[in-house]
Amino acid sequence: MTQATISQTICVSGWTSTMRPSSSVTTALKVRQLSTGYSYNGDTSTADYEEDHLISLELGGAASAEANLW
């Protein structure tokens, strides 16, 4: 994405839904996080957690970067 293409990318309604990582990516990340002890009261069910972007996609956050998913 560049300044010249911004009107065709992030300024289009629904654009972020095309950029979100697949559930296979986020589930694998949850498994790694939960295996390191990152859980609530010992709950290690990946279905009970949701990854969120620290810097939103609308603001230019990296869609699949582990450092941007928490």
Rank of each mutant, 00 (worst) to 15 (best):
M1F: 07
M1V: 08
M1C: 10
T2G: 15
T2H: 12
Q3T: 09
Q3G: 09
Q3N: 10
A4W: 06
A4R: 12
A4Y: 08
T5Q: 13
T5P: 08
I6E: 08
I6S: 11
S7A: 11
S7F: 09
S7R: 13
Q8W: 06
Q8D: 05
Q8P: 02
I10K: 15
C11N: 15
C11P: 01
C11D: 11
C11W: 07
S13D: 05
S13W: 02
S13F: 04
G14T: 04
T16F: 05
T16P: 05
S17I: 04
S17N: 13
T18P: 04
T18L: 13
T18Q: 12
T18D: 02
T18V: 03
R20G: 03
P21M: 01
S22I: 03
S23Y: 14
V25C: 05
V25T: 11
V25E: 01
T26R: 14
T26I: 06
T26E: 02
T27P: 12
T27Q: 15
T27L: 11
A28V: 02
L29W: 15
K30S: 01
K30P: 09
R32E: 00
R32T: 01
Q33D: 05
L34Q: 07
L34I: 10
L34W: 02
S35E: 07
S35W: 04
T36N: 03
G37W: 03
G37K: 03
Y38E: 03
Y38M: 09
S39A: 13
G42Y: 01
G42N: 03
T44H: 04
T44E: 04
S45R: 14
T46R: 07
T46Y: 03
T46E: 05
T46S: 11
A47I: 06
D48W: 07
Y49Q: 06
Y49E: 02
Y49P: 11
D52K: 13
D52N: 07
D52E: 07
L54N: 11
I55M: 08
I55H: 10
I55L: 10
S56V: 09
S56I: 05
S56K: 15
L57N: 05
E58F: 06
L59E: 09
G60V: 04
G60I: 07
G61R: 01
G61N: 00
A62S: 14
A63I: 01
A65Y: 10
A65F: 12
A65S: 15
A65D: 15
A67M: 01
N68S: 07
N68K: 15
N68W: 14
W70D: 03
W70Q: 13
W70Y: 08
W70A: 11
